[in-house]
Amino acid sequence: MAELLDRYDADWKTLPDTEHIRAIDDVGWKTRMTVLRDLFRLGRDGVTDLIGELESDRAERRLLAAQALGFLGDSRAKIPPALRVEKDQFAPVRVQAVDSLGTIGGSPPASLARRIEEVDPNADVQFHIRFAAERNFEPIDPNVIETLKRYDIKQMDSAAIDRPAPDFTLTDVLGATYRLADFRGKKSVVLIFIYGDT
């Protein structure tokens, strides 16, 4: 566990607050992806150590631990993320800890939402609190966890001009499944990666 997070610490460069996009040749994201996958593979065996990492003096380390705990959904992690939500100085850690509470619980979401909305001025944290309350402890789909556990990191960054587009299968918000290869010979595809853009 420590070795995994040390690797992440070494490669994941903290950006100044004024910058929002990593350099085009940044490779830290690949380490982040690899470490997250390996944390998923550790599964329950890593939960105790991840809970310990919530107390790390490195904010990005606490963030990754909170995120992984939310996906792993282990009941031993009910209380520690709640403590992070209440006391962490770094809003992104509070956001991930709130997401974790939405999946593994620890406090009734509605009362948690009311309590934190009163004391946490950060709009992003409040957005996630509303989502956690709406989610009401619905766990992460086990297939989602398996998808990352099975992910072959050699596939990372393999899309390139004039090369075959890497195939994928994803489900949309209405539950319909789309496989890229199904469009071959029939339609072109314009693939747009976004965050919440409508």
Binding site: W29, R32, F127, Q155, A159, F193, Y195
Partner: peptide, 29 residues
């Protein structure tokens, strides 16, 4: 991650995708 865009933009206190657009032709290229 396969398309090389994961965890590259900080937005609303999360690390999200680098915004990116790809056009893939009928042959899948």
């Amino acid at each position: 991650a396969t398309y090389g865009v994961a965890f590259q933009m900080r937005i609303h206190a999360e690390w999200s995708n680098r915004p990116a657009t790809f056009v893939i032709d009928r042959a899948g290229i």
